[in-house]
Simulated scan of single mutants.
Amino acid sequence: MTALPEPPLTPEEQVAANVKLLRTRRGYTQSELADRLGMKWANVVWSVEVGKRRITVNDLSSFADALGVPPYLLLAENSEPERASLEAARTREQYQSYVQAGFTEEQALELTKAVLVAGVGGKS
C-alpha cells in the first residue's frame, strides 16, 4: 500500500520549521538566537520552533533579521533549503559589506532590503 502524501504545512508550521532550519544551519543554539533577538530566554525560540507560540509580523521580521534573511523566507516552503540558505548567506554578506563601508546598521539593513527587492546584488 502506498503512503498518502503529507499535507502541506500551515503558515505557522512553515515558520517554525524554517526558523529551526535556518538557526541550525547557522550553527546557533536556541540561546544564541534568543540573544540575537535581544531576549533573555531561549524558551521563546523553542516555543516558536515547536509551534507553541504564534508570532506577530513584528516577531517574524525580528526573527528574519536575527537569522539574516528576508522575512518572506520564513514563510517559504523548504523544497529548496540549500537555495534559501545560500540566499541568506548572500544577504548577510551584503549587509555586512554596507556596515564595513561605514553605513549605520539601520542604513545597511535598508540598503540590503532594497537590493533584495530589486533582485540584484550577486545573485546567480
Rank of each mutant, 00 (worst) to 15 (best):
A84S: 07
G121R: 11
K20E: 07
A84Y: 11
E80Y: 09
A76K: 12
T10C: 11
P71G: 05
L116F: 08
G102Y: 08
P8Y: 04
E93R: 15
R53I: 08
T2H: 14
E105G: 10
Y72M: 15
V15R: 10
N43H: 03
S79R: 08
V69T: 08
R25N: 09
Q30P: 09
P5Q: 05
S61D: 11
S85I: 11
S85A: 12
V50M: 12
T104A: 04
L109H: 03
E32S: 06
L22T: 06
P5C: 07
T2S: 14
A84T: 15
L73I: 10
P71V: 03
E82F: 13
P71L: 06
G51I: 04
R92C: 15
L33Y: 07
P5W: 07
A101G: 12
E49M: 01
N18Y: 00
R53H: 06
S31D: 14
V15I: 14
Q30G: 14
T24M: 10
V44M: 07
M1Q: 09
A3D: 10
L37S: 08
V99Y: 00
E106R: 06
K40C: 02
V15A: 13
V69G: 08
P7K: 02
V19W: 03
V19E: 02
M1R: 02
W41L: 13
S61H: 08
T10V: 12
A118H: 09
V44G: 01
E105A: 08
E87P: 03
F63P: 00
W46T: 13
T10F: 08
A88H: 09
A114D: 15
R25H: 09
F63V: 01
Y72H: 13
E13S: 11
V48I: 14
R23W: 01
G119A: 02
G38D: 01
S31T: 12
V57Q: 05
R23I: 00
L109S: 04
A3Y: 11
V50I: 13
Y72K: 14
A42S: 15
D59C: 06
G68N: 00
V57K: 04
T2W: 13
G38S: 00
I55E: 05
D59S: 06
P8N: 09
Q96L: 15
P5N: 01
D65H: 04
S97C: 03
E82V: 14
R90L: 13
M1Y: 07
E105R: 09
V15D: 04
G27W: 07
S62Y: 02
T10G: 08
N18M: 01
F63M: 01
G122N: 07
V99L: 01
R36I: 03
P81V: 05
V69I: 15
